[in-house]
C-alpha cells in the first residue's frame, strides 16, 4: 500500500467518528496530501488556509515566549474546525457537525495525528 493510500485509511478512520464532516492531511506548508471532503469544497484551498492558520498561531504564541499551541479550534454556528500538527512535517484538520462532542473528536484526532507522524 502506498503512503498516500495509508493516509487515506487514517482519514477513513476519522470519518467513522460520526460527527466529523470533512477531514484532510497536508504538509505544514499547505500542500494537500489527502482529503476526505464529501464534496464539501475545494480541498487544496482548505488545507492551504488551515496550514496558514496553524502556522500563524504557532508564530503568535512563540512570539510571547510560550510553547506552541496543541491545536487551533475555530467555532462557527455550523460546526467546529480543528487543526492539529501531526509531527514536524504534516498537519491534520477536520470540520465537525455543529453539536459535535469535542472530547471524542480530539481524542480521535490525536490518535490520527500520531499515526500520520509515523507514516511519513
Amino acid at each position: 500500500m502506498s503512503t498516500s493510500e495509508m493516509l487515506g485509511k487514517v482519514l477513513a478512520g476519522l470519518g467513522k467518528v460520526g460527527e466529523i464532516e470533512a477531514s484532510a492531511i497536508s504538509t505544514r506548508d499547505g500542500l494537500l496530501m489527502n482529503a476526505d471532503m464529501h464534496a464539501a469544497g475545494d480541498p487544496e484551498t482548505f488545507v492551504a488556509m488551515s496550514a496558514t492558520m496553524l502556522g500563524a498561531a504557532e508564530t503568535a504564541t512563540s512570539e510571547l515566549g510560550k510553547s506552541v499551541p496543541n491545536r487551533v479550534i475555530v467555532e462557527t454556528d455550523d460546526g467546529k474546525l480543528i487543526c492539529m500538527g501531526a509531527g514536524p512535517k504534516a498537519l491534520v484538520v477536520v470540520m465537525t457537525a455543529p453539536d459535535a462532542g469535542l472530547g471524542l473528536v480530539l481524542v480521535e484526532m490525536a490518535k490520527a495525528a500520531e499515526k500520520i507522524e509515523r507514516l511519513i
Binding site: 504538509t27 505544514r28 499547505g30 496550514a51 496558514t52 502556522g55 500563524a56 508564530t59
Partner: peptide, 10 residues
C-alpha cells in the same frame, strides 16, 4: 515574514 517563510516550502 514568518508566514512568508511558512508558505514558501516546497
Amino acid at each position: 515574514d514568518p508566514i512568508v517563510k511558512l508558505l514558501s516550502g516546497e
